[in-house]
Write a protein that binds this DNA or RNA. Structure first.
Length: 587
RNA sequence: GUGCCUGUAGCUCAACUGGAUAGAGCUUCUGACUUCGGAUCAGACGGUUGGGGGUUCGAAUCCCUCCAGGCACGCCA
C-alpha cells in the first residue's frame, strides 16, 4: 500500500518528467493546515538551479500534475510552494484499506539490509544501572523498527566479560567469597569482593601482586581461574536475563569481549602486514595522518607491554560481524563519549577494505534532579533493578487510586506494563543527543506526552469495544485484543467509512501518516519522531471522541466510527510495541 | 590547546534535516460535563531560537566568530 506522500511524490515525478524537468525537492506534510495536507518545494529548488521564476515553474508543473484521484486541484502559494489538499473520498478509501491491513500501511523497505545492532553491553560482575538504559531502550526500539521494515536484524549483546578487573574478582573469589551471600544475591557479592580486594590492594603491595598474578593466570588459560571467570559470567548473564525479561527485550546472540580474545593477535599481525599499523613508543598504533579529523589521534592496538585493548577487540568484532555474520550494516548504540573511538575503528575497517555501512548511534546522559549524572545519595550508579521496582510500585499506587475495583493480580500485571512503559517512553520520546532529567512525576503523569497517557487512550478504545455487545469489527469475538503483526486472516466485506465531521477527518488523516512516520525514524535513528506522532494521534483521538459519539451514533456513522476506533487502537498498540512498550486492556 | 556534542516559552521538550506566521506538554488563567472511562475537550497568556556577522527567494537548521555547559583527545573500556 502506497502512502499519500509516496503517491504524490510519484505523481510529481511524472509531471516533472513530462515537463522535461529533473526531479528535485520533496513532498512533505504541510507545515500548517491552511496550506492543505502536503506541500512541495520542487519549484523553488528547480528555480534556484536554473535561475528562473519559481512561481512560473510551479504553475507549469501544476498544469502537468495528475493527482485528481486523491487531491483537490493543487495550488501554488507563497514563494512557489505547490500545495495539496486530500479529497475526502481518497481518505475514506485509504482508511478502509488500512482497517484490513495487518501492517497498518507500513511498507517494507525496498532494499532490505543485513544489520547487526550492538546495544546494551553491560559489564559482567557488576549490576546493570541507569547508565545502561538509553543504549538498551534505544537499541531495542531501533531493532524492532528495522525488523518491522523488513530488515534482517541480529541483536548482539557485546558484554564486558574480559579485562583487568578479573584479577581482583578472582583473587576476591578465592580469599573473600561468602557462598551464602553469593547464592542470595550473586552480583552484590561479586561487587563486594571486588571492592574489598581493591581496597586491600591500595594498602597492601602483596595483594596487588597477587591480583596481577591471578590475572596473568587467567589470561594464560589456567583452568581454575577460567572456571571462576566462567561462573562469574554465567551468574551475571542470569541476572541480566531477569532484567531483560522484565523489560521484554531479547538478544539473538551474546558475543562479549572474551569471544574475540583469540583473534586479537591476528588483528595486530594483519594490520602490521598490511602496513596500516606501525610501532611507536613501543606500542602498535594506527595513524590517520591524511584525515584531518583524526590526525595526531592514533589508535593503539597493542600496548607496549604486549597487551591488547578495546580498539583491538572492536576491530576483531567488525571483522566477525562482516565476514562471519555476513552483515552489511553495523549499528553501535553507544554513548557519545566514544565518538572518537568509533571514528577510528570505522576508518581502520575502511582502510582494510571492509564494505559496510558503519553507524555509531550516540546519545546523551540521564540526569538527576540536580542536573548532574543520576546517582544514588551515596554517589553510586542507580541499580536498574531498583529503578524498575520503583517504577512498578509507583504505577501500582496510581492505578489503585484511580481504579480501586481492579483485583490485586490484575493490578500488579498492569502496574508492570505502565511502570516499565513510563520509563522507556520518557527516554525514547526525547531526542537522543540531549541529556534529560529523570523525573518520576513527569514520566508517570496521566497528562501530557507520557506512556500512561497513550496507554489510557488505548484503554478507552478497548472500553468501547467491551461495551459494544456485538463487535462488528472483531474477527476473534467481542473485545478480543488484536495485535498488529498477528491479526487473524479471513475475508470480510470492507467497512464503509464516512468522514463527515472535521474531527473524524483529522483523526483519519493522522492514521494515514503512521506509514510515513515509521520509516522516518531510521533516517537519523530517532524513535522520538514516532513517540511524538503517537502523542498527536492520541490527541486527535480524544478530540474525535469528544466530538463524535460512537456507540450512540446511527448507522452508517456508527460502523465507520468503530472502524476509526479500531484502527486507532491498533496503531497505538503497534506504535508503542515498536518502541518496546506494551498496552493494558484496562488500567 | 585541538576536536565533537548541546544551548529554543518560567519549567520539560519538538520542529520531517534549508521551507511559509518556530510548535507541544507542564504551570497559570477562562470556558464546556449527571461523559461511549473527565485519566477529557475548546481557548488564552507566554519567544530577538545563547550573542553578533555571513550565505539566498527563505536559516533554529549551513558557514565564520564569540559566550556558556558537557565530553573526548597513546598505552582504561
Amino acid at each position: 500500500m502506497e502512502t499519500f506522500q509516496a503517491q504524490l511524490t510519484r505523481k510529481l515525478s511524472d509531471a516533472l518528467s513530462s515537463a522535461g524537468l529533473p526531479f528535485a525537492g520533496e513532498v512533505t506534510p504541510a507545515t500548517d493546515p491552511r496550506f492543505g495536507d502536503y506541500q512541495s518545494n520542487t519549484a523553488m529548488v528547480l528555480a534556484k538551479q536554473r535561475g528562473e521564476n519559481p512561481r512560473k515553474i510551479a504553475e507549469s508543473i501544476v498544469s502537468k500534475l495528475d493527482v485528481a484521484e486523491i487531491s483537490e486541484l493543487p495550488s501554488v502559494a507563497g514563494a512557489g510552494f505547490i500545495n495539496f489538499t486530500l479529497k475526502r473520498e481518497g481518505v475514506e478509501e485509504k482508511i478502509a484499506e488500512l482497517v484490513d491491513d495487518e501492517r497498518l500501511g507500513v511498507a517494507t523497505d525496498s532494499s532490505p539490509k543485513k544489520i547487526v545492532v550492538d546495544f546494551g553491553s553491560p559489564n559482567v560482575a557488576k549490576p546493570m544501572h541507569v547508565g545502561h538504559i538509553r543504549s538498551t531502550f534505544l537499541g531495542d526500539a531501533l531493532a524492532r523498527i528495522a525488523e518491522f521494515l523488513g530488515h534482517d536484524v541480529i541483536r548482539d549483546n557485546h558484554i564486558g566479560d574480559w579485562g583487568t578487573q578479573f584479577g581482583m574478582v578472582i583473587w576476591g573469589w578465592k580469599n573473600l567469597l561468602d557462598l551464602e551471600s553469593l547464592k542470595r544475591d550473586p552480583i552484590a557479592e561479586l561487587v563486594r569482593i571486588y571492592k574489598e580486594t581493591n581496597e586491600r590492594g591500595t594498602k597492601d603491595e602483596t595483594v596487588r601482586e597477587a591480583v596481577r598474578a591471578e590475572l596473568v593466570k587467567l589470561q594464560a588459560g589456567d583452568s581454575e581461574n577460567f572456571a571462576i571467570w566462567k561462573q562469574c559470567v554465567d551468574l551475571s548473564l542470569q541476572e541480566f536475563s531477569k532484567a531483560y525479561e522484565l523489560l521484554d527485550i531479547h538478544y539473538d546472540i551474546v558475543r562479549g569481549e572474551s569471544f574475540y580474545n583469540d583473534r586479537l593477535p591476528g588483528v595486530v599481525d594483519r594490520l602490521l602486514k598490511k602496513g596500516l599499523a606501525e610501532i611507536s613508543e613501543g606500542a602498535v598504533c594506527v595513524f590517520f595522518r591524511n584525515s584531518p579529523e583524526l590526525a595526531d589521534k592514533p589508535a593503539i592496538i597493542r600496548k607496549s607491554d604486549g597487551g591488547f585493548n578495546y580498539a583491538t577487540s572492536d576491530i576483531a568484532t567488525v571483522d566477525y560481524r562482516i565476514n562471519k555474520l555476513k552483515r552489511d550494516t553495523l549499528w553501535y548504540v553507544v554513548g557519545a563519549p566514544q565518538t572518537l573511538h568509533f571514528k577510528q575503528i570505522f576508518e581502520i575497517a575502511r582502510r582494510e577494505g571492509d564494505k559496510a555501512d558503519f553507524r555509531h548511534i550516540p546519545f546523551g546522559n540521564v540526569l538527576g534532579e540536580n542536573r548532574k549524572l543520576m546517582k544514588t545519595r551515596s554517589g553510586e550508579n542507580v541499580p536498574l533493578r531498583d529503578l524498575l521496582e520503583e517504577a512498578i510500585t509507583r504505577a501500582e499506587k496510581i492505578i489503585a487510586d484511580k481504579n480501586p475495583e481492579l483485583n490485586e493480580p490484575e493490578r500488579k500485571e498492569i502496574a508492570k506494563i505502565i511502570g516499565i512503559g513510563a520509563v522507556k517512553y520518557a527516554d525514547l520520546s526525547q531526542y537522543r543527543m540531549t541529556d534529560y532529567v529523570f523525573s518520576w512525576d513527569k514520566m508517570l503523569a496521566l497528562h501530557g506526552n507520557t506512556a500512561p497517557y497513550l496507554q489510557n487512550a488505548y484503554v478507552r478504545i478497548r472500553s468501547i469495544f467491551r461495551k459494544n455487545a456485538v463487535d462488528p469489527l472483531s474477527r476473534g469475538g467481542p473485545s478480543s485484543p488484536r495485535r498488529v503483526c498477528d491479526r487473524a486472516g479471513g475475508s470480510r466485506q470492507q467497512t464503509a467509512v464516512t468522514l463527515a465531521e472535521p474531527a473524524e477527518m483529522d483523526l483519519a488523516k493522522r492514521l494515514c501518516q503512521f506509514a510515513e512516520v515509521v520509516p522516518q525514524v531510521l533516517n537519523d535513528f530517532r524513535p522520538n519522531v514516532l513517540a511524538n506522532y503517537l502523542f498527536e494521534l492520541a490527541n486527535s483521538f480524544h478530540a474525535f471522541y469528544e466530538a463524535c459519539p460512537v456507540l450512540k451514533a446511527e448507522e452508517p456513522a456508527r460502523s465507520s466510527r468503530l472502524a476509526l476506533c479500531d484502527l486507532t487502537g491498533r496503531v497505538l498498540q503497534g506504535g508503542l510495541k515498536l518502541l518496546g512498550i506494551g498496552v493494558p486492556e484496562r488500567m
